[in-house]
Every structure is written in structure tokens, then in C-alpha cells.
């Protein structure tokens, strides 16, 4: 077993895990943060997206042990003090989710995208989010929600 101390959504967390256990399994099974989902376990769907030191990654392709001393961000940390992030608001307003299982991954990835590129083109959004699979929406409403959130965030 490995003992790991890390920060998750700003809070210091210490956990123990198997050396081959993924960060996704640690988050879900040990820390009860089930917002990140396992859709494939092989980095092909993005449902388990989290940020690691501000960069979006698939938590199924990160070992729990690697989180030592790092900053982890999950969907549970996007709303602050009960207030939804503009992306969360626009996802609801634009009906950008149907089943909602890919939504946490999309929100984490879209937030990271907008932090690096506050005014993305449609193509930049589509390519930037190509690692997040959605099977319900055909992406149309997701892209529109991200565009609207970006506009709202630029206005401040």
C-alpha cells in the first residue's frame, strides 16, 4: 500500500491505495467522490476527466500514487459555495445533457479549455473536447453551451 497526501478541490487529503490503483478508483472507491465516471478505463472517453495541477487528464490513466503533492480538481469542486459555474448554468440552460453521465467530464474539460482559451472558435471547442464522448446529444447543444459560457465569462 502507498500512502499519499494531496490536495483535492483545494482541500488536503491523505489516503492509502494499492500501488497499481488508478486515481479514478481512489476518488470513487476510497474518497467517495463519484462525480468522475469510468466509461472505458482506457482513456478513450473522457468521462473520468479531472485536472492535475490545472491540466485536464483522464484519471483512469493516472495512478493514485502519482497524486502525491499535486493539486487534483474534480467536478465536485467546480461550483463554489453552492454557486454554479457559468458552464454548469449554460449546460442546464442549453439542455446540453441528456443522460448526464458524460457531463462531469465535459465540465472539467471545458473549464480547463476556457481557462487557456477564453474565446474559442467552434472548431477549437470541438477539437478541444474531442476526448470527451457523448452518445446522447450529437454535441450540438454542448458546443453551444460552452460558447455561451465563454461569452458569459468574458463579460465577467
Amino acid at each position: 500500500m502507498v500512502r499519499v497526501t494531496t490536495r483535492i478541490n483545494g482541500d488536503e487529503v491523505t489516503f492509502v491505495c494499492e500501488p497499481d490503483e488508478t486515481l479514478l478508483d481512489v476518488l470513487r472507491d476510497r474518497l467517495n467522490l463519484t462525480g468522475a465516471k469510468e466509461g472505458c478505463g482506457t482513456g478513450d472517453c473522457g468521462a473520468c476527466s479531472v485536472t492535475l495541477d490545472g491540466r485536464v487528464v483522464c484519471s483512469c490513466l493516472v495512478l493514485g500514487a502519482e497524486a502525491e503533492g499535486r493539486q487534483v480538481g474534480t467536478v465536485e469542486g467546480i461550483a463554489r459555495n453552492g454557486k454554479l459555474h457559468p458552464l454548469q448554468e449554460k449546460f442546464l440552460e442549453f439542455a446540453a445533457l441528456q443522460c448526464g453521465v458524460c457531463t462531469p467530464g465535459f465540465l472539467v474539460a471545458a473549464k480547463a479549455l476556457l481557462e487557456r482559451n477564453p474565446d474559442p472558435t467552434e472548431a477549437e471547442i470541438r477539437f478541444g473536447l474531442a476526448g470527451n464522448l457523448c452518445r446522447c446529444t450529437g454535441y450540438d447543444k454542448i458546443v453551444r453551451a460552452v460558447q455561451a459560457a465563454a461569452a458569459a465569462m468574458r463579460k465577467g
Binding site: 470513487r28 467522490l33 463519484t34 462525480g35 468522475a36 465516471k37 469510468e38 474534480t74 467536478v75 465536485e76 467546480i78 461550483a79 454554479l84 454548469q88 449546460f91 442546464l92 440552460e93 439542455a95 445533457l97 448526464g100 453521465v101 457531463t103 462531469p104 465540465l107
Partner: peptide, 17 residues
């Protein structure tokens, strides 16, 4: 807005696993 939407954007909705 859908009634289950909030839970789904904050990661609180509980799916099968």
C-alpha cells in the same frame, strides 16, 4: 430547466456504479 439537472452538473447524481 430539468429537475435532475443540478445534481448532474455538480457530480451528485448517482448512476449505476
Amino acid at each position: 430547466l430539468r429537475p435532475d439537472g443540478y445534481d448532474k452538473v455538480v457530480g451528485r447524481a448517482r448512476f449505476g456504479a
